[in-house]
Design a protein around this nucleic acid. Structure first.
Lengths: 331, 331
DNA sequence: TGCCCTTTTGGAATCGATTCCAAAAGTGTT
DNA sequence: AACACTTTTGGAATCGATTCCAAAAGGGCA
């Protein structure tokens, strides 16, 4: 048989559709006997309210969408776990989609917000230009997390990337480094902030801002190796390298080790994110821990406010505290 | 102003709603002048058809949902990238959700298929019992990928895990191993199959099935270390260890190295999946490559058939070819 | 111009759940 | 038993896009 409707349930239970709906939603009082009959009919027909009909009438979906370029990262999956848990607490379902850095794909997914397929959007790493983020955020329920572009209207949750980079650079200097290098991710907003923090720490200590190598595109293990290889071609080597992510740091350590250098005795290395790779690396990486799960939760909380409170387009950023994790890759 | 409807567009363009809809869907001929007026009105009002209304009327959503326990794995993200690309090719959007191994969460997500929030479901790692997978698959459009439970009605795409494990075990034996151990994942169906393949290879070679240590729950880097630690407590050590996943193999290698053993000279280690960690490990891991992206594409193709062809509940499995990747962790 | 045939158009009916309003049933008090 | 009041119920209207049918407009030809 075709999918049963509320009409079928009403007929089977011998009541009206109104009553069925009231049982379904507990919206107002229904006699015990009617409730029983309706529930029996629902079970008998294994009836489920059709989402599209319900959404149409209610004008909301109780769904949110989380976007990122890719999903293969502990930070992202933890952030989205936080979003998912917080969403569930409020009766929402959170869905995830990867854009693969494809503008059209991303556009299509943002359109899901425009056309009411979902009630809100969490953006991790946008592909679209900053202005577009801003335009979307002006009218719709959007919150950014981790990677936050300069958008007037957009709200965002992240750590203070500049400060965190500053802190870890200070740590490197405190352990005796005099000549520092950085492998930074051009293109990622957070990468630029981390670069700023790095520079600031050096300036304050009166050290010359040394080599900063910029990786573009896929900023991963191989990029870490390649950039480090370039670094090793220089005459005088740095005595500490700050890498924009742990995976890049892992590549860096690997390249140094292969070149016969000892980490941290010859060169200290620090990463960022405290991802799984930080512990898997030999030596284990000094890094910055982001409270990813918590960031996800906070991001959803903000989104919820935007979705439910009329005109609650509070702007600005929320910073959550980061944490320095000192391990063996710096002495 | 409130969201514009098809009525508003019709009024603005000076035509009927029917004409607007026809322009929107290109379903039948519309005069050039009318089309122009409608498109102008759509742009002026920045109109987007409301998804729920459209879905209700069309009785489909052009959305599919992909489920996995967690997302932090290259295999999963590649599989889902394949699903996403294949879906896009057919005009579908593919969404992803993590169950965190939580039965209720999973139930809620499967209900999205039941209530028509999505048209189809790709299941990577089910939490529910096999029978439930079967029941769902009997009535609805579901396809399993990678982790495939014994479900009569369910269709699945994967590699031949048993054969792959058999192949890599043979490889270990060919490189001279006489005493083999395995770290397998109890609970994962693929883990059991890999165990079978391992056993079969040993039996065929007339070797005693040696130690098989089973990891439960979180089968990751730490599990690899812990299980290996146990293995090292025994009097006589194996000369090769086959690990159910690369991440576990990385933990295994790390523990062996810390214990002063050399890989592969003292003990060879093989992994499974060819994930990012395989290359990041020192020595780089011998492993089995799954054609993850392709598996995703094929899985969606199967799903599409189920969704569109009436009664196309073709059963059984599709196996895609795996590939042995020989690296330095086995000599 | 008149006739027939094709193309285009308007508008009502439809999808299924919710909600509002008025009517019916129930409860209690005198 | 009659009244006032609350609780429960039925059913029509509604959400917005699509689709079907019949009517109107356009086109070609005699």
């Amino acid at each position: 048989m075709a999918r049963p409707t509320v009409q079928d349930v009403a007929r089977t239970a011998g009541v009206s559709v109104g009553t069925v709906s009231r049982v379904l939603n507990g919206s107002s009082a229904v006699s015990a006997s009617a409730k029983e009959k309706v529930n029996a009919a629902i079970k008998e027909l294994s009836y489920r309210p059709l989402a599209s009909a319900r959404d149409l009438r209610r004008d909301r979906t109780m769904r949110v969408l989380a976007l990122a370029k890719n999903l293969d990262s502990l930070v992202i999956s933890e952030v989205f776990r936080g979003v998912g848990d917080a969403a569930a607490d409020s009766g929402y379902v959170s869905l995830i989609a990867a854009t693969d850095g494809d503008r059209d794909r991303e556009q299509q997914l943002v359109d899901m917000l425009r056309n009411g397929s979902v009630d809100g959007l969490v953006i991790f790493s946008p592909t679209m230009p900053d202005d577009d983020v801003n335009t979307v955020a002006e009218q719709l329920s959007v919150v950014q997390v981790c990677e936050i572009v300069d958008a007037e209207a957009a709200f965002g949750v992240s750590i203070d990337d500049r400060q965190a980079a500053y802190d870890i650079t200070k740590h490197l200097i405190n352990t005796g480094a005099k000549k520092l290098a950085m492998l930074a991710h051009r293109g990622a907003r957070s990468g630029q902030l981390r670069e700023e923090g790095f520079r600031q720490a050096l300036t304050e200590e009166g050290l010359e801002p040394d080599t900063i190598l910029l990786g573009e595109g896929n900023f991963g293990f191989h990029a870490g190796r390649e950039l480090t290889k370039k670094l090793l071609e220089a005459k005088d080597l740095p005595d500490a390298i700050f890498c924009g992510t742990d995976v890049v740091a892992a590549g860096c350590v690997r390249e140094l080790t292969d070149a016969g250098l000892r980490v941290p005795q010859d060169i200290a290395v620090a990463g960022f994110d405290d991802s799984a790779q930080a512990e898997m690396c030999v030596p284990e990486l000094t890094t910055v821990r982001q409270p990813a799960y918590e960031m996800g939760r906070v991001a959803f909380a903000e989104l919820l406010e935007r979705m439910t409170v009329e005109g609650a387009h509070r702007k600005g950023r929320t910073f959550l505290p980061h944490q320095l994790v000192i391990r063996d890759s710096t002495k």
